[in-house]
Design a binder for these strands. Structure first.
Lengths: 341, 341
DNA sequence: ATTTGGCAGATTAACGATAACATATCGATA
DNA sequence: TATCGATATGTTATCGTTAATCTGCCAAAT
């Protein structure tokens, strides 16, 4: 019952080759004879050798780790993305390290430090609006990175996100086409480009329908999150001076439907409900949510871009904007005709 | 525009102290004079120094990383747990590294290797049944670890999980008390103790109600997952020779309800539905799911245990079993009285 | 005045792996 | 036969940090 970790030295002594030769054998260096390589690899396996990444990375400069920095893990969107990233990165022989901001923007800087400190080979980053300064760290330390899901003003960097303006526009034109004239708009908490862009697109659709901003009551993200946490989302509904609700993400829609149901309002007969979910169309709700989504995977594309950039740092910055669509579930309908707001 | 990483050497040259002194200053070593310490810390900050974890860990043996190995991230259960773990670990100055098995059991061994290779300070592990051998790696390499959510036979190690036998029993007695006599039991894919234990408890409740195993049709986990992936869960429902469904996790229940609804079966009027969710009672469904849960947090307790163990490897192994309760949502009711199965 | 002890900081040697370079062997070629 | 090049392996230096040990200095104690 030997204890503690086996090192190259141990293997070297056990099979008579130098540490260097052992190291090369374990990395499948083709300059070694097949016999030597196999002998060493077998010995290593028998002894239960596990390479020390810390040492290896220190010397070689490569850690085989990619970090992804996310807002929080309560959002199923993100979790699905993370899963996909993990899969794709593992195929390319990288480990994914998930770093979570816990909705604390100040933590972002620290997490970027952590990632750099770990000598990660690349970073996938969901930036918020006010985090542009942190990006400098990555550039200064020459860490390849890709920005996901959000736009950061005045930054020249790889970037993949959804067409949020178009998303907001689709939501708006869908509702106005059905005849809605008064809206409740529930925002998300993050100060992200998604917020701004979706609202822009939404308002443009209203303008095209001859409506003004007056028709929209906006609930700030912080109120939404607070209400969610307190399980009191019902408060946000009053006064019911609207016939349609636009909610920032699908997950808000579930408690929302419960709250509407409790006060006797039926979806979509009395109130229409539409939300955004850049990631997938499937929804467990009954009726299924009408939702804005994209067919493509930010995770897949983001990982691909990062792999390319890690491979060649001199590539020009790329900007990918994914088209969005509307999934017409069962939560939108024309407003009740007897309504008079 | 300086590039690449600043090292202790750079700081050392910039402020005239040796690397060692710089290193100590940056670690708040009390043996240094306050003046020196501040001078060095300020210089480091100005120069944008970021400690190299790889080097630091190599020398010191501590990485400040804790790894958690999970089955997959599509399960909101796990994501909630991970979030909590991350929070608690960060408070204790550790980074959480999430390693995902992607439902591929063989990957577990590799992930444990990865964790050890990274010199993590501890491992939180959701083991499956057939993974007991892998645990040896952790013991051999003296990595502190805690087993979560599942029981592994014949292993003497820190362990926190729910009382799954009791959970199965609660589900069973709840349904038999309502008058149900025929059941459909949807399993989860993992070969975990939860599976076995819940079924044990469930069957015991049936026996106490004078029923035998014959009353239960069991759908294997692999079929459930396949159906979920193909979006064809409806297939599993036939023939409808039961009045109650027990599903292994809440997330299966949503598509299930949709499928029942589509074929004109109402929950709970025609079919009762109960599921397990060790983690939280809140459910977005309408009506809310009747579900087995626990008030306590496996994440919180698991992290606490791991911190204690990392602090003192000589502690005796501890075994914590959390009590479970039933949340009576709206998805169970007496069976239709005209039924004759 | 000499010893003692503590403090601030320097010197040196690792941690484990790998890159860069050097060497030895052998067959092929001039 | 002497030289060359390819192949297979050994030597040495180093990645950035920290642990272990040591030195010099000054104040307090004898």
């Amino acid at each position: 019952m030997k204890s503690s970790r086996i090192t190259l030295k141990d293997i070297s002594m056990a099979c008579g080759f130098t540490m260097n030769t052992v190291s090369r054998a374990l990395r499948d260096d083709p300059h070694l004879s097949a016999a030597t390589r196999e002998l060493i690899q077998n010995t290593a396996r028998e002894m239960g050798y596990i390479r020390n990444t810390m040492a290896s990375s220190l010397r070689s400069g490569r850690s085989h780790i990619v970090a992804v920095i996310v807002n929080d893990l309560h959002n199923q969107h993100f979790c699905d993305l993370l899963n996909r990233m993990d899969l794709d990165l593992r195929k390319a022989d990288y480990n994914l390290m998930i770093l979570c901001m816990q909705l604390d923007n100040a933590l972002a800087e620290k997490l970027i430090h952590t990632a750099i400190s770990l000598s990660v080979d690349g970073i996938l980053y969901f930036p918020n609006f006010d985090q542009a300064p942190y990006l400098e760290y990555m550039e200064k330390n020459r860490v390849p990175f890709v920005l996901l899901d959000r736009r950061v003003p005045d930054i020249q960097a790889d970037n993949v996100r959804c067409d949020d303006v178009q998303g907001g526009y689709l939501a708006g034109s869908h509702l106005t086409a059905l005849g809605h004239r008064r809206f409740l708009f529930l925002s998300g908490i993050e100060k992200s480009s998604s917020q701004v862009d979706r609202m822009d697109g939404f308002l443009q659709a209203l303008r095209e329908a001859g409506l003004s901003e007056e028709c929209v009551r906006v609930v700030p993200g912080i109120q939404v999150e607070t209400a969610l946490a307190r399980n009191s989302i019902s408060e946000l509904l009053d006064p019911v001076d609207y016939t349609a609700i636009v909610s920032f993400r699908d997950e808000v829609s579930y408690p929302l439907m419960n709250a509407l149901h409790e006060r006797g309002l039926s979806v979509p007969r009395d109130i229409s409900l539409i939300s955004f979910d850049n990631l997938r169309a499937e929804t467990p709700a009954l009726p299924p949510l009408t939702s804005i989504y994209t067919d493509e995977s930010i995770a897949e594309i983001g990982v691909k871009m990062l792999l390319e950039r890690m491979d060649d740092a001199s590539l020009p910055a790329r900007n990918v904007i994914l088209p969005v669509k509307i999934f017409e579930g069962g939560t939108t309908a024309p407003p009740p005709h007897n309504i008079n707001l």
